[in-house]
Amino acid sequence: MQISMTVNGTDVTSEIEPRVLLVHYIREVLGLTGTHWGCDTSNCGTCVVLMDGQPVKSCTVLAAMAAGHDIRTVEGLATGGTLDPVQQGFMEEHGLQCGFCTPGMMLTARALLDKNPHPDDAEVRQAISGQICRCTGYATIVRSVQWAAAHPAAPGLDDAPATDHSAGTGLDGTDLDGTDTAVPDVAAEIEDTEVKA
């Protein structure tokens, strides 16, 4: 069957089997491998993407069900080479280790902050409770989200500059990957950050 959807701001159209899971469609058809697959029972949340701004576990959505919807993956979190505050927060507060749960965690955090710019720690924990991390013990993830909440000045989606499409190409020659792999200048931010004892 033919499906069309918007992925990271780009329209895509593909011919797929109806049974194909959205996680496999994103990873294998579109080549956006930042979205991961960590379980087979919809518990772990490493596959979380945003569908119309809501976090969904893409292993539990058929690609066909996403047709006509707006999908945002980790590759679409940074805009025009500028990291989302959530991405920066995870680096500042050591909210990741192996990095496998990180894309899903960050997208859930983005959705949370879009709705609730100043969540308390309990609200952050509640928001990410559908996602398992084996490395961090969660405390630094909570701190990372709070860092992002405290630094909303970093450009968000709405005021983002035009997407740089140089990094990847999807089906039909469409550019899907809005990321820029240049290392960000986070040094300036760190200088002003108080060190945790």
């Binding site: 080549g31 956006l32 697959w37 980790v74 680096m91 050591h94 990180t102 792999t181």
Partner: peptide, 23 residues
């Protein structure tokens, strides 16, 4: 001392390279 991780920039962009990403 406390320095940020050199690994993080690729992981927070979905640009890690795990086994199942290999094609």
């Amino acid at each position: 001392g406390r320095i940020q991780r050199k690994e993080d920039p690729r992981f927070v962009r979905g640009k890690g390279h795990y086994l199942d990403d290999i094609v």
